[in-house]
Amino acid sequence: MRNLLIFLWRYNFFIFFLLLEACCIYLIAQNNHFQRAAFVNSSNRIAAKVNSGVSAVTDYINLRETNEGLARQNAALKSLLPGVYYIDSVNRSHVKDTLRKQQYEFMVARVVNNSVNRRNNYLTLDRGSLQGVHPEMGVISADGIVGIVKDVSPHYCSVMSFLHKDSRVSARIKKNGFIGSMVWEGYDAQFAALKDIAKHVKLAKGDTIVTSSFSAIFPEGIMIGTVDFVDANTGNNFQDIRIRLSTRFGSLSYVYLVDNLMKDEQLKLEAKQTQ
């Protein structure tokens, strides 16, 4: 025991260093955990205030682009409208065709903090639990998908950007319906990779990639990007496909939070099968 104390005393500097590093690693590990109750994030009051101030300045500079984006979004929304509804009158002739039930709700939010240059990127939005935001809601912009809500405080929420090591979105090739998954391999916010597409699938530059109906988070058919480069000469059964993302992550100002009203029902049913 005495020897132990002497040992601890002699190397106290090193042990203190290890202790602090262990604290840091713990915080990082917690941060990666999907639904954590961390206090070191920009949802907290002071950090969000400062980030709000910075964003107020950049918002003004980007005003022109934002206006153009909103006009484009209006046009896009009109064409989206039928897809927003879940039609529950299929195969029931006695129910009138016009009876439709809403499946997705959209809420506008302003981006108060954003990054694209890290390996794991996050956004902060100015909507929180008081407005009905909850974790695992989807986030989209006028141009395409943005990310998934990770943490919520009363007035702010932080969003795991698609530009993240752990993000994986189920995607569909629009012209032939094949399903793959999108991941971001880092370093360039304009490009991502489409995985799990077998070699016999014919693809051309410019083909559109949209979200599939497999996700309980994003509605079906939200734009992801276009094919930029295809390499079929790989060593495995799948093609290497580079996708040019349609969302311009570097200049996001306003985004939409997507709430799937029937998500719980779907997940509960699916959970039963795996038991």
Partner: peptide, 23 residues
């Protein structure tokens, strides 16, 4: 060490990076 930890943690708070900068 303490000052290093605190400085890193403050940067982490603004950048949403857990304990990266602190480490």
């Amino acid at each position: 060490l303490v000052l290093g930890f605190v400085t890193g943690l403050v940067i982490d708070m603004f950048g949403n990076s857990g304990g990266l900068h602190a480490a």
